[in-house]
């Protein structure tokens, strides 16, 4: 089946200035998973559905190419996936019996790269993104201005991803755009 192009709140907007590149990712399928992630039932489900292990340190994420698994809380994970989110959610509910919700359209994802990225983020987030504290493979739910975000560190160059709620996407994007002039 052909995937139709699905709208995102910023219509793939970009910022490209000296030392900072920001781009909104295309529509990303996301599923929020609840359950006891220490149980073998959950581990089996993750293995069969996504080919992933359930062991994940707090504030960390793992990716196997097709899917990315984020820690959101002791009994909560978020996945980005290339598969059909509805299918994964219903299979999760069948196999595990706890909640799984397709949250693809709750939020959008901004990819931030360039040497100024950390300065831009700390201008709005009360969170320490120093490379000694926030390493590649770590994620954190925090605040950017007034928007709740899920921040993740993907490469040392650096490359960060900021997941922000749909209704806050324009706000966060404008915030970044204005701050980029000062940092």
């Amino acid at each position: 089946m052909d995937n139709p192009v699905i709208a995102t709140p910023l219509n793939a907007a970009k910022i490209d200035t000296d030392g900072l590149t920001v781009a909104e990712l295309g529509h990303t399928s996301k599923v929020n998973l609840r359950g006891d992630f220490s149980s073998s039932t959950v581990n089996n489900a993750l293995t069969t559905l996504l080919g992933m292990e359930s062991t994940l340190a707090p504030n960390a994420f793992v990716s196997n190419g097709a899917s990315t698994l984020f820690w959101l809380g002791p009994n909560e994970r978020l996945i980005y996936t290339d598969s059909d989110p509805e299918t994964i959610a219903s299979q999760w509910r069948d196999q595990v019996g706890t909640g799984a919700v397709d949250v693809s359209d709750y939020s959008t994802v901004l990819r931030l790269s360039g040497p100024k990225v950390r300065d831009v983020i700390v201008s709005g987030a009360p969170f320490d993104v120093h490379p000694d504290e926030f390493k590649v493979g770590q994620c954190a739910q925090t605040r950017f201005g007034n928007a709740s975000i899920l921040l993740s560190n993907h490469a040392e160059t650096p490359v960060f991803q900021m997941q922000v709620r749909w209704s806050f996407a324009e706000y966060a994007f404008e915030y970044i755009k204005r701050v980029a002039n000062y940092v």
Binding site: P58, P74, P126, F127, T142, R143
Partner: peptide
Amino acid sequence: PYCGDRDQTE
């Protein structure tokens, strides 16, 4: 207790 040290505004 779950995330570690964070700023009070969170």
